[in-house]
Write a protein that binds this DNA or RNA. Structure first.
Lengths: 266, 266
DNA sequence: CAGTGGTCTAGACCACGCT
DNA sequence: GCGTGGTCTAGACCACTGT
């Protein structure tokens, strides 16, 4: 070959793109780059560090994957606002019992209790459909495969920001034709348990199976997390007198701002 | 400049690197590329798709972020094996009560119950030390900052494979000088709760705070997971008559093979 | 229209693992 | 010694955003 290409600089401890990412991360952590601030553009970083654009983009990619920044085409990179950690306690399922002489409480659901938000800040997307039970749902709900179910897919938002995705299944034989099956009635004060109570179904036990995994690209987008932030998933089963009456498969929670809190009495 | 560079191909629906990732993901999901199988090398993918190496690497990067594959320097990329899921139920804390005439049960702890393994397959590393309570421990244990604690760091192994890391703190004023503070007595049949029972401390409530995060490099190595697999962490507090008597900070579980199972009675 | 991040090319050198 | 993924360079064209 002709002349050798300019050799890479002396082998640094860390790759250049990690050094760049570390420096930017330090500025974000220290508050030098506060939430919402613009990062230097890719061209600026190239000049400041004397590296090629690909190297800069690798550094930026790390921070985006960590969920520290957002990158938007044509608009630049910005520091992502951080959310406080939400504690999801078991008491979110407790039914409200009002004391005599108390003011009627503001409407609430397990979601508004988790978030510590008022009814007004609570919005949701909802998609209802009817589906037959597959193997997994049949086992969770203890019905035959093929049993008709009401599927309700929700995206819950707090102040407009998506905080939770869930897909819930109810027995169509139980809720079909009732107000519960009408999307217009959602959100429903008191949530699932209150809904079922109106049908004479008294939920007395909730089972939660908790796992973690990386988000799908779609989930990461919806929840506004980086694709290197894991999610918590819950499979929730509600039981009335030992009989499963509702199954929520893959309740998806952003792992960087949720803590699940369980108390076990022995 | 001289002639223009060869233009990019007609604007595809999806970027090329996503198409490549999608195709590989499809092969993994369908089993065409089973667990442990080698992916095509980067050079092979360049030839098969007629793209530059940077494009191939972007595709590979997506799959690695999703936890579907591992990439190892000098050894190639491989489909990550999927582990069977272990269910950690609340009953792992239940104290054994033997019926009359029953055979004495094999020794057990919450860990052996989780794993469904016998006593013989159970091994552990243990490191004991005495430390003063920091802010967090002081709050968890409801003692003054600086209170002396017994710190016990464990790595639990099933058939020699590390499956759980935990760091547990006990009040030195409660366990100092007792058999509980002697590393030689670990593993202790019946585990923590049985240990405390010998001191007249009856644990009647366990609180678990569950979070998820990416593992530290050290944790990833110890648990034998890649650094793209999230971990579940549990902060566990054991209480006797409402008083905290043990705190386990950062029980670390490999997220690709653990499910936590909680039942809530309303 | 200038500036931005998204996508892509066509090369290069490196250190390590395997055979 | 050859092949591998990890790192890096120096360009290019694109579509959209903001002024």
């Amino acid at each position: 070959m002709g002349g050798t290409v300019i050799a890479m600089p002396p082998p640094a401890e860390q790759p250049r793109y990690r050094q760049i990412a570390d420096e930017l991360r330090r500025r974000i952590d220290s508050g030098t780059l506060p939430a919402g601030a613009s990062l230097p553009t890719e061209v600026e970083l190239m000049e400041q560090w004397g590296v090629a654009r690909g190297t800069v983009r690798e550094a930026i990619g790390l921070l985006r994957a960590e969920g520290l920044i957002t990158t938007a085409r044509h608009r630049g990179s910005h520091v992502r606002p951080r959310w406080p950690v939400r504690r999801l306690g078991m008491d979110r399922y407790r039914v409200e019992t009002h004391q005599r002489d108390e003011q009627p409480a503001e409407p609430a659901t397990s979601f508004t209790k988790d978030q510590g938000i008022g009814w007004a800040a609570y919005t949701m997307d909802k998609t209802y459909s009817e589906v037959p039970a597959d193997d997994r749902l049949a086992e969770l709900l203890q019905v035959p495969v093929g049993e008709q179910l009401l599927r309700r897919h929700f995206v819950f938002r707090s102040h407009g920001v998506p905080q939770q995705i869930s897909t819930s299944y109810l027995l169509l034989s139980m809720v079909g034709g009732t107000p519960v099956a009408d999307p217009a009635n959602e959100p429903w004060p008191g949530g699932n348990i209150a809904q079922l109570a109106t049908l004479g179904v008294a939920v007395d036990q909730v089972r939660e199976q908790v796992r973690t995994r990386m988000p799908t690209p779609d989930e990461a987008r919806t929840l506004g997390i980086g694709d290197a932030i894991p999610v918590l998933t819950i499979t929730r089963t509600m039981l009335a007198a030992g009989r499963p009456v509702e199954a929520a498969v893959d309740i998806v929670l952003p792992g960087d701002r949720v803590e699940l809190d369980y108390t076990i009495d022995l």
